[in-house]
Nucleic acid binder design. Structure first.
Length: 256
DNA sequence: ATGGTAGGCGCCCTA
């Protein structure tokens, strides 16, 4: 089974790229972030015609997540502890009794110390508490998404320049570590990887051309799934497209 | 202490 995560920065704009990538990559489950589309205008028809099921939660202008899958989920959760999300950033789907996919669009946080930064930390804590309660529900549990956090210095093109900055600050990293400490692995790092592999490059200043990127899109796997993981990669091809997303899809492959 | 680009919206905000 092939599972992927991709922040598309507007599903309306990127739908043709998503459909063509789904075909080429042959993924079974794709979690998408930043759809920026309200549920009423979600492109269900186009996705179903491509042979996929989709579940989604979105809003106007900002945020929004969707999980696209070859097999239909048997359960879908769009709220945390029964409360409606004020910002639509989380979608949980469960498949065949034994696999949970938690699709996250983590708050960006804007600037260290800002109100948005404080909200990011608070949001991460509430997500961690939810995961802690939920993670025994299925044998295989996977959290994917745009985490807006670079786990380690090896995930940043210029760690010195980014030290303590947003996406790299200690508090963000320890919030991520608290989630990992529930028993998850960063599946990309289960394997030896080449140096300088990233998943996001700023649209500005030719960052992609110069490979000035960060690895902030992650697939976290619980122990049972980590053992079944045979490969993890970042597919930078879609970042070379005309009108690309600023993120590339990240992929993990499992023997399940 | 700020610029650069992109998307959505509506002449600015978020990333």
């Amino acid at each position: 089974m092939k599972i992927a995560s991709w922040n598309v920065n507007s599903l309306r704009v990127r739908l043709p790229q998503v459909l063509s990538w789904l075909k080429k990559s042959d993924v079974d489950i794709l979690g998408i972030q930043e759809t920026k589309v309200e549920d009423g205008s979600f492109p269900i028809k186009e996705i179903e015609e491509a042979g996929f099921f989709c579940d989604f939660i979105g809003q106007k202008t900002y945020n929004g997540v969707t999980t696209i899958s070859k097999i239909p989920p048997k359960e879908v959760i769009k709220s945390i502890d029964g409360k409606e999300q004020e910002q639509k950033r989380i979608l949980l789907t469960r498949y065949k009794d034994d696999l949970t996919i938690l699709n996250l669009y983590v708050v960006n946080g804007s600037e260290v110390g800002s109100d948005k930064y404080k909200y990011k930390l608070k949001w991460l804590k509430s997500v961690k508490n939810f995961i802690k309660k939920d993670l025994k529900k299925t044998k295989y549990y996977l959290i994917l998404g745009d985490f807006n956090i670079a786990p380690k210095d090896a995930d940043i093109y210029d760690p010195k320049a980014w030290e303590g900055k947003i996406l790299c600050s200690d508090k963000e990293r320890s919030a991520l570590k608290e989630i990992l400490d529930l028993g998850f692995k960063d599946s990309f790092r289960l394997f030896d990887q080449e140096k300088d592999l990233y998943s996001w490059w700023d649209y500005r200043t030719g960052a992609f051309r110069r490979n000035r990127g960060l690895r902030i899109d992650l697939i976290l796997t619980n122990m049972a799934l980590s053992k079944k993981c045979s490969k993890s990669l970042i597919d930078i091809e879609p970042r070379k497209n005309e009108r690309p997303s600023d993120h590339a899809p990240v992929v993990s492959i499992f023997d399940i």
